[in-house]
Design a protein around this nucleic acid. Structure first.
Lengths: 340, 340
DNA sequence: CTGTTAGCGCCTTCAA
DNA sequence: TTGAAGGCGCTAACAG
C-alpha cells in the first residue's frame, strides 16, 4: 500500500509538499503538482482515511443510529428507505456512513459519547429512539452535530426533521367523519416512541376539532406489531360494535386490524373503515388496499443528511429543523359509514 | 477525549504499560493493571479505534458490499434481513461493519483494493454483484478475506455461502408437473446476476429430469422488477394460452405476473399456477398468497459472517463454503392444471 | 513555493 | 515487570 512517503521519494519532493499537492492547496507550483499527481496515479495511491482522521481529529463518517436492527422491520421498508436516502445524498460527497444501534452499543456498555469518539464521528442521524432512551439525553447534551428524525428537539448542535403528520392525521380523522363515522378508535404504537405521542395527539386534537368525544377506551396499543395489533383488536371489535372506523399509527398494525376483522367476519370497508400510517409497500397489496398516510422516510433521511452535513461544515442554515409533507392516500379500506 | 497518555500521567506509569494493561498483556503486575483499569474507568477512556487501526495496520471493520442501495429493494426485505444477520452475529464480537456499494464506489473511481485499503477493512461480505462486475475479478485476485453470497467462487481468501436453490427449484417444477402442468414457463431475472444463471439452470435441469421439452421461448426476462415482469408476461400469456404455469426467479416478478394475469382475467391458480422465489413478506399477502421458495437471507448473511470472521482470525475451517437449506413453500397460487 | 519539525493516539520492539 | 524510543500515514504550523 503506497503512501505519500513513497510519492515523496519518487518525485524528490517532501512529504509535506506531496500532501499539499494532493489536497489541492493553492500554494503548490502547478508543475510540481502535476508531477506529484502523476506519480500518485501511477502507483495507485489511496489516502489512508484512518491516518487522515487521526491527525485531523475528525472523520467524514456519519453514524446512523437506530434503536435496534431487527428482522421484523423488513416488513415495512422504512429502515432501508432511510438508508437509501442517506446514501444517495452522501454519494457525491466524501462522507461515508456507518450503521449503529443503541441496543448493541448498550450491550457493549458504550455511552453515546464513546460511540462518537471511538470513531471520531462527524455527526449522527438518529431515528426510532424511545423517549426514555438514556442516549437521548446524552445526545442533546453532547456537542456532536445530530439530526433527529421525528423527535422534536433542537439546540446548538441538534436539529430535526419531521413531517406535518399531525395535520395529516387530522385530515384522516376528519375524512372519516365526513364519511359519517362518529365512533373512531385509535390503535397506538409503543408508548415509548416519540411518534406514538405525536400521532395520538393528532388523533385527539382531531376529535376535539370535530366535536367528537374522546373515549379513553377507544385507544388501543398494538406496539407497532401486526400480531399484537390483531390480538388487541379482536376483543375490542367484539366489545365495541358501535365502532365503525379504526385509525392506526402504522400500516403494519392496520394490517393486523384487517386480519382481526376478517377473522370476525367484519367486512372492510363496508362495516369497518381502517386507516394506516406509513404507506409501506404492503399497504398497496393488502386486501383491501389500505387508506394510509404517506410520509417518505427516504426524503426525511435525505433532508436530514443535508441538514447534518451543513451543520458539520458550519454552513449557516437558518432553520433548526425541516418539516416535510405527509399526506393522506385514499385507497379501498375506507368508505361511508354503514355503506351496505 | 482522554487518551492513554492521560491515564499514564494519572497513574504514574508509562504509556507503554498502560497500553499493555488495557490490552490484557500478561506481563503486567495485577495491582498495576487494576490501578490503570480503574483510572481508565474513572475518566471514561475509550480507545481511539482510528489510532489503533493505523498502528496495527488493520481494522476490525467488515465491509458489506452490495451492487447498489436502491429504494426498490425495500419491496423485498432481503437487504435488511442480510444486514440483520450480519449485525446479530457481529453484536457480541468487537467487529463492526460498514455498508458499501459498488455503484457509488465506481462513481468515486475507486478500485476494490482502494476500497479495502482506505479503511483497512478486515474483510468483506459481498452480495448481489453482477457476473460481469469488474470488482468480482479484483476480489478473487485480492488477498482480502471475502465471503460471497450466492456466487460460487472459492480460493485462499474467498469463500461463499449459498443454498440448495437448484434442488428447491427442481422440487417446485416437479411439484407443478405432478399437478398436471406440462407447459411451464420461466421468468428469469437480470442476465448479469449470478442467481439468474443458477435458477435458470435449475429450471432447465428439472424439465430434463421430468422429460419435458425446454422451449427457449418459454423463458422470459423480468429483470427482477415487478413492472417489467408484468409487461413481459402480458403478451406472453396472450400468445401462449397453452402455458398453465409460470415459475419466477423472484417473488417480486411473480407478483408482476399475478398482476398481468389479473388484467387479462386469467384466474390464478385455476387457470394459471404461479411460483415465486424468496418468500418475501409480500408473498404472504398477495392475492392469492404465493407459492414460493424460501431461502433465508438472514441465515445466509449470518453464516457468511461467521465464515468471514473465522477466516480473518485464521481459524482453520475445513469447508470453503456453506450451503443452507432452501425449501418450497406451498400456498395458494398453485393448483391442479385445469382445476376448474 | 517548499522543506523542517512536530505531533495525532496507539502499539511494539528492545533494553533495563 | 516496566519504560524509552520509534513509527503507523498523515497534516499543520513555521521558517526559509
Amino acid at each position: 500500500m503506497p503512501t505519500i512517503k513513497d510519492i515523496a521519494t519518487m518525485t524528490g519532493f517532501s512529504v509535506t509538499t506531496v500532501s499539499r499537492a494532493l489536497n489541492d492547496y493553492n500554494d503548490v507550483n502547478a508543475q510540481t503538482k502535476k508531477k506529484i499527481e502523476d506519480a500518485a496515479e501511477k502507483i495507485g495511491y489511496v489516502p489512508n482515511i484512518l491516518a487522515q482522521n487521526l491527525v485531523m481529529k475528525k472523520s467524514k463518517t456519519i453514524g446512523i443510529l437506530v434503536n435496534e436492527l431487527k428482522r421484523e422491520s423488513s416488513k415495512d421498508g422504512l429502515m432501508l428507505e432511510m438508508l437509501c436516502g442517506v446514501s444517495d445524498v452522501l454519494a457525491d460527497s466524501d462522507y461515508e456512513f456507518v450503521l449503529l444501534s443503541t441496543s448493541t452499543a448498550k450491550q457493549k456498555n458504550k455511552t453515546f459519547k464513546q460511540l462518537c469518539e471511538e470513531r471520531q464521528l462527524a455527526g449522527l442521524i438518529i431515528q426510532g429512539l424511545k423517549n426514555d432512551d438514556p442516549y437521548l439525553e446524552e445526545i442533546v447534551d453532547s456537542n456532536v452535530p445530530c439530526v433527529l428524525i421525528d423527535i422534536l428537539i433542537t439546540n446548538e448542535t441538534t436539529k430535526y426533521v419531521t413531517s406535518n403528520q399531525i395535520e395529516s392525521i387530522k385530515d384522516a380523522i376528519k375524512y372519516l367523519h365526513r364519511l359519517g363515522h362518529c365512533a373512531i378508535a385509535y390503535m397506538n404504537g409503543s408508548d415509548g416512541a416519540h411518534v406514538s405521542t405525536i400521532r395520538k395527539q393528532g388523533y385527539l386534537e382531531a376529535l376535539k376539532e370535530i366535536g367528537l368525544p374522546a373515549h379513553e377506551n377507544y385507544i388501543m396499543n398494538g406496539q407497532f406489531d401486526e400480531d399484537i395489533a390483531k390480538k388487541v383488536a379482536m376483543p375490542f371489535l367484539l366489545n365495541h360494535p358501535e365502532v365503525t372506523a379504526v385509525f392506526c399509527a402504522s400500516d403494519v398494525m392496520a394490517i393486523g386490524v384487517l386480519s382481526a376483522a376478517k377473522d370476525l367476519s367484519i367486512k372492510v370497508p363496508e362495516k369497518l373503515s381502517v386507516i394506516g400510517f406509513d404507506n409501506i409497500v404492503l399497504s398497496r397489496y393488502s386486501t383491501p388496499p389500505l387508506t394510509t398516510i404517506s410520509q417518505s422516510p427516504y426524503n426525511m433521511a435525505a433532508a436530514g443528511t443535508e441538514l447534518l452535513t451543513a451543520m458539520i461544515e458550519k454552513k449557516q442554515e437558518k432553520t433548526p429543523f425541516k418539516i416535510l409533507n405527509s399526506e393522506l392516500i385514499i385507497r379501498e379500506s375506507t368508505t361511508f359509514q354503514g355503506s351496505v
